[in-house]
Design a protein around this nucleic acid. Sequence first.
DNA 1: TGAAAACCTACTAAAACTATAGGGTAAATA
DNA 2: TATTTACCCTATAGTTTTAGTAGGTTTTCA
Lengths: 142, 142
Amino acid sequence: MLSKKTKYGLKALAFLANQNDRHPIAIAEIADHENISQKFLESILLSLRRTGYLGSKKGKGGGYYLIKDPSEIPMTTVMRALEGPIAMVSCVSLNFYEKCEDCPDEQSCAVHKLMLKVRDSALDVYRNTTLADLIIQVPYSQ
Amino acid sequence: MLSKKTKYGLKALAFLANQNDRHPIAIAEIADHENISQKFLESILLSLRRTGYLGSKKGKGGGYYLIKDPSEIPMTTVMRALEGPIAMVSCVSLNFYEKCEDCPDEQSCAVHKLMLKVRDSALDVYRNTTLADLIIQVPYSQ
DNA sequence: TGAAAACCTACTAAAACTATAGGGTAAATA
DNA sequence: TATTTACCCTATAGTTTTAGTAGGTTTTCA
């Protein structure tokens, strides 16, 4: 199941992408519009900022804004920042690889074989989907 | 992350598929071979039995065995029995659909749009992968 | 200088997951 | 009839994750 953190993070990004211009929008405004606890959203936006696609400005009139065009923001980065590894087991993770302590041989492991396929297909989706795809109605996307 | 229940379940199925014949194998033997707590495996095999692909026999010489050929056992059924819904949010689930209570409109929801794609790609993998694919070394599967 | 807003740390309540344990019932075999 | 093994139920303890909450610090603008 997708965590609320990821849900909220995606909704917040979509909200920012839907703005006409790129002026800063306060956390409070986003939280209010998307029905998210402000404090919770605060921590979410903070982790999204580390992707480099989200900028912030402090003080009066400050807030968060997209640094790049939505079409240049791939879901791979966003999902890794929000949900963590895309792989369902660490032994097939590209960025967070770790050997399973109980598995003697990865090559012959059924779990490994299956999860490798699942990871590849998920990666394919995330790499080919940008924030722009999530807000514009495309009749026959793909 | 994949639960241990699913990991163990897949390993147990693969172990059964690797047998020469289809005679019953006791839980204790599977648990021992795959390093799984016997009681835990017991409950896992029970839920797998409900898929109709796994048979059991009580009494002396009893145990679990595959009812169908591994090539006829699709991962869709297995994963649903072990992990539950394939979709990451209930609003895109085929078998467990439920409307998100906080989302006013699915059509315009960014989370919905993205997770629909992810579900489709995962389904594609599970539908086209059978238990046989997880045990036999196929050079260029797909 | 004061207000507004992001930033940062720490804490917490609840839920889920993992694994084990115990107990008993039902069915099959010898 | 005795043994073996699956079936089924409950409980529990420990750990981790989730979804926040609280409170203070820093930066920026007017």
